[in-house]
């Protein structure tokens, strides 16, 4: 374990992992919904930094733009448009919370043991060239994955129209 810390990139990874997990803990600790949204923004930015560290430049930038930018702002809007004073109940530990914590903890233990027990073959030489990464992803998206790409654009259109349709004010609600 010691020699992992001797390299700059693995040290950076452990610091990033610590920041991400701390933000996640803060997310669980906060009572006010708006603070939770802010902590979630911090987690998303941390994930983006992790992608950049791993050399996945395109996905990292997309993560910043979509998750840290769009989704966090959308979250803020949703909180402001609904009950923005909302807080989580202070009640210590109900049966539901206890069961949820137990289930999540058991899943975490199983997953961590499985990861530890498996022998992972790892490639030590990684292509971290930005130009190569972006070029290759572009070629893959428009040559090999053209049909899924178009289908995703259709899905986005349907989701946009559907979201506007669902959130609109109906006539009977206006009369109230």
């Amino acid at each position: 374990m010691v020699h992992f810390f001797s390299h700059g990139d693995s040290l950076a990874f452990y610091v990033l992992a610590l920041i991400i997990l701390l933000s996640a803990m803060l997310f669980l600790q906060f009572r006010k919904v708006i603070y939770m949204a802010l902590a979630m923004g911090a987690i998303f930015v941390g994930c983006a930094a992790l992608f950049l560290l791993l050399g996945a430049v395109f996905v990292g930038i997309a993560q910043v733009m979509i998750y840290a930018g769009a989704i966090t702002i959308l979250m803020m809007f949703a909180i402001m448009l609904t009950n923005h004073e909302a807080t989580e109940s202070v009640s210590a530990f109900g049966i539901r919370k206890g069961l949820a914590a137990l289930g999540a903890f058991l899943l975490a233990v199983i997953l961590l043991f499985t990861i530890r027990a498996t022998h992972w073959r790892q490639s030590l030489v990684v292509n971290t060239d930005t130009q190569h990464n972006v070029d290759k992803i572009g070629f893959m998206l428009f040559r090999q994955y053209t049909i899924p790409f178009e289908l995703v654009s259709l899905l986005l259109l349907a989701a946009l129209v559907g979201a506007v349709w669902i959130a609109r004010q109906t006539k009977e609600e206006k009369q109230d």
Partner: peptide, 14 residues
């Protein structure tokens, strides 16, 4: 091409 020393199991554990 660069050498990366981040252990894969640590990323999976995170």
């Amino acid at each position: 091409m660069t050498t990366v020393h981040i252990p894969l199991p640590s990323v999976l554990a995170l």
